[in-house]
Design a protein around this nucleic acid. Sequence first.
DNA 1: TTGTACGCGTTATCAC
DNA 2: GTGATAACGCGTACAA
Lengths: 352, 352
Amino acid sequence: MSRRTAASQANAGAPAGPSRSTPVRLVDVARLAGVSTMTVSRAMRHPEQVADSTLRAVQGAVAQLGYLPDSAASALATGRSRIVAAIVPTLMNSVYASTVHGLASILRGAGYELMLGDSSYDPSTEAALVRSFLGRRVDALVLTGVEHDSQTRALLARHEVPVVEIWDLTTQPIDMLVGFSNVGAGVEAGRYFAAQGRRRWAFLGTSPQREGRSGKRLRGLREAARAAGLAAPVPAFVDDGMSPAAGRDAVLRLLDSHPQIDALFCANDALATAALRAAADRAIPVPTALSVLGFGDFDIAAHTSPALTTVRIPGREIGERAACALLARLEGTDPALGRVDVGFEIVGRESA
Amino acid sequence: MSRRTAASQANAGAPAGPSRSTPVRLVDVARLAGVSTMTVSRAMRHPEQVADSTLRAVQGAVAQLGYLPDSAASALATGRSRIVAAIVPTLMNSVYASTVHGLASILRGAGYELMLGDSSYDPSTEAALVRSFLGRRVDALVLTGVEHDSQTRALLARHEVPVVEIWDLTTQPIDMLVGFSNVGAGVEAGRYFAAQGRRRWAFLGTSPQREGRSGKRLRGLREAARAAGLAAPVPAFVDDGMSPAAGRDAVLRLLDSHPQIDALFCANDALATAALRAAADRAIPVPTALSVLGFGDFDIAAHTSPALTTVRIPGREIGERAACALLARLEGTDPALGRVDVGFEIVGRESA
DNA sequence: TTGTACGCGTTATCAC
DNA sequence: GTGATAACGCGTACAA
């Protein structure tokens, strides 16, 4: 491979002004500073181990050359990429966006970069992403949810990498876990309806096969209905991307076919907003005749009319805690806490 | 560095079951398949250059060992990381999320991974991200907006990397550009108001210093007002994170201090939703007494009441086109088109 | 405190 | 069609 050699020759022939292209390596800095590469490396990584005078010389050379260490080479030499990968179902949902934001800010503060993938709620896409990330030798992996492909599990078993699963709970996590009980959220939603004297509940979300966490919320709602001695909630599923348009149609169908429904729990606030609109279209007063409860506490929830009562999930906190757990493991300082339940909270506003 | 050696020895001593830890390298596959490392490398990258029988042998060994090529090593050897970095102001806004999604899906299809950063609308954070990404030797960079730190520009000048700026237009792009005219959007918003006979306009957004694109929309609105022979629009700025709560207060203050306002252009739909709510709070009928125009066409825009009239930006398309432009440059096949104006469109619904 | 020598896992070259 | 060899740029023992 004579790429480098050729470039060097080209440089040698050229006027070689101060602002050349990329090829600035450790050696170049070392030469300019009049020291060895090792000293430069140390000066950048452990400045305290180097004499003040040489340190200044190195820093000067670095600045003059605009040297930027090559992290690929560094990764190869150390076996650590300082990259963490995260897979979320979608970025289009502000709660996952908060989680990603929380993750990224903590990690970046510790010198790690975040590599992001969205699985579109598809387990095999998740597996493909995991494979790709593992190939990039990421130092750790964040996975949304606790249900994964057998292929994903096999991959993870082979390449022992720290893993944090987020946004759900399970008794058998792959490794670490930061989430909350989705079943519990469903149960609390039901109790909330029961306390209001609602007797005929419905649920709007993605189908359980497609998204386990939504299914668990439905399961919780069912349990609460049984406990309250009420009929099982009527489920309605929208699978094409949780778009408000599809959601609205689904709610319209639901209200038309089951006019006696007096409470509706939606798997996310976008759907709940659509439900509010559908109720308005049918002239059904909310919350008088119909209680609408959302999930996620999206930005807009407080500003719909009526303002949306919803289940608030600390999305950003999930990201931050996951990042901290990973860092603890990666830096090997504090013992990493394996399992965190961040909980949730029903924010009572006007719609329920 | 005897990490590898030590590991090998440990492996040699252990039972060495089929599902060992990571250390599976090209050599291991080569040994098992009875060929050289070069042949394995070729079998994976250019299968057509290798005999069918050896190909099968290699594939078998790869499968049996669960081999995953180390892209850091590959990056070092080839000089290409197959990573593209993108910097957006925030992920909390679904339009940028679409852009990121568009970028990621096209890039992944071509074997590139996306590394993401959010600048929080802060130029110096952007510079820090650019520095970090450059250190990672990303193959290309996507930057939101056309205004950048001098430090950012210096960095980019030194390390010649393909760059695409998105979400705005300029006559002097750093390199490639995929966006639309923010000034133009402001002008069209004004024309829309003028056509409705609105005479006293207002603008709600972030301050121009903080976010150039929002400022350009205001500038466009001003131009339109002048052209229509009307007074300059009343500006109101919310700088603390575009939160609906802050937005609502700002609108309340605006409406109270300038009761004659009959049209309001908001820099994003979250703000517009807050404005809708504020108008309801003051019992101001929309759109009869007040026309509210949003920006971004967020998911929820169609389902507020009244449904939000807004400026639709093809966020996803911006991402996709940017990705295509990059790929064209990186793969060197088609000539990359340097400048794309994707335009925008006012979606007339109920609020204006 | 600083330098020498070699290895990290992969690929390009060029000969066979 | 296949293999030996030498990089790619950096970090770590170990010696000085």
